[in-house]
């Protein structure tokens, strides 16, 4: 009885505690950040991965090489010739999100395509995947879409065993151009070569000052080791951290969106690159870091109110690293 009473009390006090820790909820994110700082007319820039690639390149950022774009049903069969000279590639819907419709192929031979898990798919399977993509099955609102084919990223050796069968990506929330929180997302057997958290990837919170792991979660539950490789996750340190943060911070200049999530990868040979930008980044980054976004967002809002502004990504990164060191 007493136990039950305590449980109920704990539940009632939960909102207050979460508020004290500055946890950002979905409603507040939509209303006070996305709705307020993201101009709708700029959404197409980030909702379309082709456009994102373009603006990122114009801004001088590196992006995964584009192998080609398949725009209509008649060209679907050309995919096999298109990728003939590329050992590995990825097909994704230009307007997809959340890892939907992303087909990662690590190698292929004589019309047999191999996924990161080792599973094989046939020529027909690949063609069907593109057909579905074109019909808008994976895209926002089910609109017709195009299929983007890009080079497979070979991830940096320092990430070996932190990610299983897939490229880990680094998500940084950038508010008014200041990186406020970061995590690395490592794919697992259940996430099928994609590093999207709700598909089962592990999220590792990163210290903004150093790029070192602070904590890790899978499906919002704390974990200490990678579930497939058993590598302790607290050993993770991101190389080229400063460079990555600057790349993330420059997304502000690229898009003009106030509240965005930048997805980046570290390629073995070509270094940090922008994978995609997100106008509605998820909240799981808070669980991965074990801390709330609100206080950090409010610090930046306070800076703005005092009329302080920093015009280059480098300056803003420096400010963030000082403000948000954990």
């Amino acid at each position: 009885m007493k136990q039950l009473f305590r449980n109920i009390r704990g539940f009632i006090e939960l909102p207050k505690k979460l508020r004290q820790r500055g946890i950002l909820g979905m409603n507040q994110r939509n209303h006070s950040y996305i709705g307020r700082y993201n101009d709708r007319s700029k959404y197409p820039l980030v909702d379309d991965k082709l456009k994102t690639k373009q603006i990122a390149q114009q801004a001088g950022a590196t992006v995964p090489e584009l192998i080609g774009v398949i725009e209509s049903q008649v060209h679907v069969k050309e995919i096999h010739d298109l990728v003939a000279d590329w050992p590995g590639f990825v097909i994704k819907p230009a307007q997809g999100s959340g890892g939907k419709g992303i087909l990662v192929i690590t190698s292929h031979q004589d019309g047999r395509y191999t996924k990161p898990s080792g599973a094989e798919v046939s020529r027909e399977d690949v063609e069907r995947h593109i057909t579905n993509t074109l019909a808008g099955l994976f895209s926002l609102g089910g609109k017709n879409d195009v299929a983007v084919v890009e080079n497979l990223i070979e991830f940096d050796d320092s990430f070996a065993d932190f990610s299983y069968e897939g490229v880990p990506d680094i998500r940084v929330i950038v508010f008014h151009g200041y990186p406020v929180m970061a995590m690395m997302r490592c794919s697992t057997a259940s996430s099928d070569g994609k590093a999207n958290l709700h598909q089962g990837a592990v999220g590792v919170g990163l210290d903004i000052a150093t790029g070192k792991a602070v904590r890790a979660v899978q499906f919002d539950h704390p974990v200490s080791h990678h579930p497939d490789t058993q590598r302790p996750l607290d050993q993770l340190v991101i190389p080229d951290w400063e460079q990555l943060l600057v790349l993330a911070a420059s997304a502000w200049e690229m898009t003009g969106l106030g509240y965005i999530g930048t997805d980046m990868v570290l390629d073995k040979s070509r270094g940090p690159m922008v994978l995609e930008l997100n106008a509605r980044p998820g909240l799981a980054i808070q669980t991965a870091n074990g801390t709330g976004l609100l206080p950090r967002l409010q610090k930046i809002e306070a800076l703005k109110q005092q009329g302080i502004s920093h015009n280059t990504p480098e300056e803003r990164v420096a400010v963030s690293r000082e403000l948000f060191a954990s």
Partner: peptide
């Protein structure tokens, strides 16, 4: 309701470890 910025009930469960 369109102005409500508090937590959703499902989020209390989701973020309970953070409390």
């Amino acid at each position: 309701l369109g102005n409500y910025t508090g937590y959703r009930l499902s989020e209390l469960r989701r973020f309970r470890h953070l409390a």
